[in-house]
């Protein structure tokens, strides 16, 4: 891969890829593999980007599709992230509020089905129901209902009182 392409088109959106890959992996080694694979597929598919959507939306879509169809290697499941679920260096700005909270949230998200992980990540990234439906391939009415259910489940896992 040309490093220019990576620096210009992928790195500015690395946060999207990191957040998605993190939800589909249980340890640092897997995470790096997934991240690498997504970058590779973005490079390979870049000529198919038709500018019908934003580049960032395209990256969300591609990252999700790659994570859903990634072939996992059999790895030691006891090996976790440094801070139980999320490496510290990845959330350098989280000290005040909740490194622990975000780790717990990620751990809870990983308990969801693979599709639900994608849906809730897009929701948390403030994508509209319409955008989520387009990326996932559903309709926006169903997305709303599904998000409600996912949130209920996450709140239960995290022991959050619903307002």
């Amino acid at each position: 891969m040309g490093s220019d392409f990576y620096l210009a088109y992928i790195l500015p959106h690395a946060a999207i890829i990191i957040k998605i890959c993190r939800a589909y992996t249980n340890n640092q080694e897997d995470f790096e593999d997934y991240y690498q694979e997504v970058c590779l597929q973005i490079w390979r598919s870049k000529d198919r980007f038709k500018e019908q959507c934003e580049w960032s939306t395209w990256i969300y879509r591609l990252s999700l599709n790659v994570c859903l169809t990634y072939l996992k290697k059999a790895k030691n499941n006891h090996q976790h992230f440094v801070s139980d679920s999320l490496p510290e260096e990845l959330i350098a700005d989280s000290k005040n509020f909740g490194e622990q909270s975000i780790n717990q949230l990620y751990a809870a998200i990983r308990q969801l089905s693979e599709i639900d992980r994608g849906v809730i990540l897009l929701y948390l990234e403030e994508k509209t129901y319409q955008e989520i439906a387009e990326i996932i391939g559903s309709n926006s009415n169903n997305i709303g209902v599904r998000i409600k259910r996912i949130k209920e489940r996450l709140n239960k896992i995290l022991n959050i009182e619903e307002s």
Binding site: S45, K50, R61, L62, L64, N65, I136, G137, S138
Partner: peptide, 9 residues
């Protein structure tokens, strides 16, 4: 094509 919705893909 990977650049379609997850369902289509």
């Amino acid at each position: 094509d990977k650049d379609v919705s997850s369902y289509q893909y």
